[in-house]
Amino acid sequence: MASQAHALTEADKNRFYLTKEHHPENGTLLGFWIYLMSDCLIFAVLFACYAVLGRNYAAGPSGADLFDLQLVAINTGLLLLSSITYGFAMISAQAKKVKPVLIWLGITGLLGLGFLSLELYEFHHLIQEGAGPQRSAFLSSFFVLVGTHGLHVTFGIIWLVTLMVQVAQRGLGAEMKRRLMCLSMFWHFLDVIWIGVFSFVYLLGVLK
């Protein structure tokens, strides 16, 4: 009787926890995930700000006047490509091949830099046109939201370069993989945020 009950709980355990454990149980990845969730809240607040203020043009230019969708489409493509190249880096890391990891990380970094320079070009262009963050509530919230995302990408690139140096020096040990995994989550998370930005800010912004 007792052993039967024991077997049952064992089976339950298997069903709920042990079928396929996803991450190593060191807590870092869960902790990093919780950090990402808190970051998600930052963006939620900024999106809420933009949702409230996004149509307050103060008789200034609107999104339809300012946004260049072709530029945004290219930017979106760059970020999307960088997501899959990071995925390839992770697959190479699984196979413990240092050189492909470095190459894919390098490509990811370059795509990230391309994204960032296009965004800076756009910001520069807007400010040149007199549509800087001080022009209207719409532009303030726009610059804060898109700028915060850009800042995240900037730090992502710094982190990526740091990891490239570390991979080159130390190879692909368990803790190196853990670091790569964290940056992977961070990088894909930024891509998820960008989906919100291009849909909600840019595409809805140019609709009348």
């Binding site: 926890y17 996803h22 991450h23 997501s83 998820v192 989906i195």
Partner: peptide
């Protein structure tokens, strides 16, 4: 993105 890139599922980290 959540499913294919971030590999979310109901089992990860228990």
């Amino acid at each position: 993105h959540m499913i294919y890139f971030l590999h979310m599922n109901s089992r990860s980290e228990g």
